[in-house]
């Protein structure tokens, strides 16, 4: 039996950059420009049918990777029919941390993308309402970036420190 990630690579030869498994979990790395198309195919293809967008988050690999692949957007998909899971990863650089929004594919990605924008500053192009969700509008910066100091305070009211 061919592994799931291999099958996805065959299904989407142009979009998938690499495929494999880590600790028994399947993953594929997708080209940033092809993410929406790839997701739609993963959702609709008979052999895939990933109907759940379970999780979407970002990882900041500051200092661990090259500058042009600092952030990684990580999607976890699940198929109710085939009971399989896949991790889809997309790398974006520090100069232009942006990629296309997948809200047209799964409307449930809405808040998850807003959260990734809020905490990591990843821009999701085409998102209907990309604004802060967990933090307040006046907040400056994106706190889960590794270069945001943990002790930094930005109180809205009260003393500065």
């Amino acid at each position: 039996m061919v592994e799931l990630s291999e099958r996805i690579k065959r299904l989407l030869p142009d979009a998938v950059l690499s495929a494999g498994s880590s600790l028994g979990q399947q993953y594929v790395v997708v080209r940033r420009e092809a993410v929406v198309e790839a997701m739609r195919k993963l959702r609709d293809d008979e052999t895939m049918l990933f109907n759940f967008m379970m999780d979407l988050t970002a990882v900041d690999y500051l200092g661990k990777r090259a500058h042009d692949a600092r952030y990684e957007i990580v999607y976890h998909l699940y198929s109710l029919k085939h009971h399989h899971r896949i991790r889809v990863k997309v790398s974006v650089g520090a100069d232009d941390p942006s990629l296309d929004s997948i809200v047209p594919v799964w409307k449930g990605a809405d808040w998850f993308e807003r959260e990734a924008w809020d905490l990591y500053g990843i821009t999701f192009k085409g998102h209907p309402n990309l604004k802060r969700i967990l933090l307040y509008e006046e907040f400056v910066g994106h706190p889960l970036r590794k270069d945001y100091p943990i002790k930094k305070r930005q109180p809205l009211i009260g003393p500065e420190n």
Binding site: F52, M53, M54, L80, W106, K107, G108
Partner: peptide, 9 residues
């Protein structure tokens, strides 16, 4: 369909 699309569990 909506529940699945929203990510209900």
């Amino acid at each position: 369909e909506d529940a699945i699309a929203w990510g209900f569990t």
